[in-house]
Computed example of a mutant assay.
Amino acid sequence: MRTLLITGPGGSGRTTTAAATALTAAREGARTLLLGTDRTDTLSPVLGTEATPRLTVKRVDPDADFRTDLAALQDRAASALDLLGASRLEPEETTPLPGAEELAILRALRDAALPESYDLLVVDLPPTPRALSLLALPEELRRYLRRLLPPERQAARALRPVLGRLAGVPMPAEWLYGTAARLDRRLAAVEAVLADRDTVVRLVAEPGPAGADAVRTATLGLALRGLRTDALIATRVLPESEAAGWLAGPVAQQRKTLDEWRESYDVHPVAHLGRDPRGTDDLAALAVPGVTTRPATVDWPVTDLPHSRLRSSGGTPTADDGVLVWHIPLPGARRDELDLVRRGDEIVVTAGPFRRIVPLPSALRRCTVAGAALREDELRIRFRPDPALWPRTH
């Protein structure tokens, strides 16, 4: 199943574009699921009441998800809560805590990808800043879990049933590790959806200075996370025939931005209808493209420079003053916005307002950082093998 994540600045026509894209795909024959993530139902007013064959629309319900999760947690910890004399919370007295909405969206994304009942999943993500934080959440939460509850510490779990029988109740550590393991599996499933080669992000923006800044920032944040983009939808494009009078300035501004975007993106201009699109006829008139091509794979490969003498001998890496280079694509990055820190076996990359902490590949853990440079929209980090950690060959 293909997954298309749609985001853009607030007010750029993100939801309209998501609805139009899903409608186009369904009319082209794809069994399409359109997932809305807004707390209020913003998709129904755009789509209207007319049913479309092969198109299913669903909306995330964070309130219901939070109550379900809280009830399940209380059930698993019932013995410990009874021991402490704690009172259970009833569903009608609970309201979602901060972060519950984000977790509900991630769960919906995971669940929608599981049944394989559809050919295409279109997700109307929140506005770009929040969407980028949301897409980073699975990796960050899994990292926190591994640090706070390392899986190897469960080696002593064989003793917990004995201690539990002595105390008369299950030990809290048992359900705590079990809960952490379940959460880790769920987050891993979301990560798998995001990392899948059939998952892409489609950016939406109105051409102009503000839209250009938003697109550059979004592209940088997506690249740092290794997420792929398939197209840039330029919304509310004024017709060239209106390039006179008081509209001459906005038309020229849009034309300039579109020309700049076309140098780096697959741009699809969407004409301004002169009104807010409502109903399937208006959505079809926007002529938003479907999903027919696969994007180029984006990854963070470790490669040799031509002058490197790093080689493999009998499956064991050896080096004679060799250099490894880690290429990290960062389109739109600026040198004065970059920061790089090595912390043990991790590398911390900061690009503008975004930061990512990733474990180093095994080969680079035995190297020291020899320098870094930003060239051709790539951050290139140079690693030199540490003689104390690399075996010598004779």
Rank of each mutant, 00 (worst) to 15 (best):
G279D: 10
H394Y: 11
P250V: 12
W246M: 15
D266W: 08
P138V: 12
V302H: 11
A78G: 11
T280H: 04
M171T: 14
A212Y: 10
Y177N: 08
D119G: 06
R366K: 13
V341D: 10
A25F: 09
L34S: 01
I6H: 13
T68K: 08
P239E: 14
E116G: 14
A26I: 03
I347C: 11
S133N: 14
L374A: 07
P391D: 10
G290E: 09
T235W: 14
E191R: 12
L310Q: 13
L70G: 00
A188K: 12
V193D: 02
K256G: 11
E140H: 08
L273W: 02
R67G: 03
A156S: 12
V193P: 00
P207W: 04
G332K: 04
G99E: 09
D65Y: 04
P170Y: 09
A271Q: 11
I105Q: 02
H394K: 09
T21Y: 11
T32K: 05
T40Y: 05
L159I: 07
L35Y: 04
A370H: 08
A388R: 12
D276N: 05
T368M: 06
R153D: 13
V288M: 06
S133V: 08
T318C: 03
K58T: 03
S12Q: 07
L89H: 00
V251A: 12
A86F: 12
R153F: 13
R143K: 14
T15W: 05
V162Y: 15
V123S: 10
A173T: 08
E263V: 05
A113V: 01
G11R: 14
I105N: 00
A333E: 06
A104C: 06
A155E: 15
G221Y: 02
L141A: 15
T15P: 02
R380M: 09
D61G: 01
G36W: 02
S241F: 08
P129Y: 12
P127C: 13
A30R: 15
A180L: 00
L305A: 15
R147K: 09
A167E: 07
E101L: 05
S241A: 15
D336G: 00
F383D: 05
L247Q: 14
A131E: 10
V237E: 12
G332H: 02
W390L: 09
S133E: 14
G8R: 05
P9T: 14
